[in-house]
């Protein structure tokens, strides 16, 4: 753990810290839901440690409760997590030169929030130790916060207020990430196309609408990029 790693870890942690607030309602909701499904404290925290994915945990709970076939649990969790293949491919160049075990640990810790917050600066940096620190600092914080707050949800599932709409804080956290990204026009096109698709296809099972929306958004951004570039060259010509 050299100086560059530690400096990266501190910068990444500070960058991610305010946004990690959005995890709190998610973790509470997940903890309460696992207790509601009839898990013991050990089972709930076991799932929380080995799966470590709010969407996949909440998405498979109803199937586990009814004793659904294993393939259905596997397929549902896969559909919910397909987006991580895209994130993993996008962030992979930043792990060049990192040892295999640290890459496996980094894969286990990959979350939407840390990816969105940290991948741009990681990909721009040339120092591999700084990059790893900048990723692992916020990721380990995210893991600890997730475990502790879920445990609070598991232990206090009967006393938390349900009518405060606290789950909306998770959406606010995602919006805060979105604001600086959509400053460029192709990014805005990608976001609007993806959002409109997700709203239109929200009835599809297994959150497949979300996956379709991500693909539509990426395609729209790519098309928008060329289209807007063409437009500006025309302006210059005039």
């Amino acid at each position: 753990m050299n100086i560059a790693f530690r400096q990266g870890a501190r910068e990444g942690f500070l960058h991610y810290l305010p946004l990690s607030v959005g995890l709190i309602p998610w973790a509470l909701v997940t903890g309460v839901a696992m207790r509601g499904a009839g898990f013991s404290v050990l089972e709930a925290m076991g799932m929380n440690c080995i799966v470590f994915a709010g969407t996949a945990q909440l998405g498979t709970l109803p199937l586990i409760v009814i004793g659904a076939p294993m393939w259905m649990i596997l397929a549902t969790a896969l559909a919910l997590n397909l987006r991580f293949v895209i994130f993993s491919a996008a962030i992979a160049p930043a792990f060049e030169g990192v040892s295999r075990w640290r890459r496996i640990l980094s894969g286990y810790l990959l979350t939407d929030g840390v990816f969105a917050t940290c991948s741009p600066r990681m990909l721009a940096s040339t120092d591999k130790d700084w990059r790893l620190g900048y990723y692992l600092g916020p990721s380990i914080w995210c893991w600890l916060l997730w475990q502790v707050v879920t445990l609070i949800g598991v232990l206090g599932s009967s006393v938390l207020p349900t009518n405060w709409s606290l789950d909306f804080m998770a959406s606010i956290a995602l919006m805060v990430l979105l604001v600086p990204i959509v400053a460029s026009r192709p990014m805005l096109v990608a976001a609007l196309a993806a959002g409109a698709t997700a709203v239109t296809l929200h009835d599809l099972p297994l959150k497949l609408g979300l996956i379709a929306a991500i693909f539509v958004g990426i395609a729209a951004g790519f098309v928008g990029e060329r289209w807007i570039a063409d437009d500006s060259t025309k302006d210059v010509a005039l």
């Binding site: 987006r83 895209i86 994130f87 491919a89 996008a90 160049p93 939407d112 990816f115 969105a116 991948s119 909306f168 959406s171 995602l174 919006m175 990430l177 979105l178 990204i181 959509v182 192709p186 990014m187 805005l188 990608a190 976001a191 609007l192 196309a193 993806a194 959002g195 409109a196 698709t197 997700a198 709203v199 929200h202 979300l210 929306a213 991500i214 693909f215 539509v216 958004g217 990426i218 395609a219 729209a220 951004g221 790519f222």
Partner: peptide, 24 residues
């Protein structure tokens, strides 16, 4: 080309998660 297209993944995924929650 795909790597470049993937730069749009975060914006797309974030909007796809947020907009249904806000509009539905």
């Amino acid at each position: 080309g795909l790597q470049r297209a993937l730069r749009y993944a975060p914006a797309a995924a974030l909007a796809a998660l947020v907009m249904p929650d806000v509009l539905l």
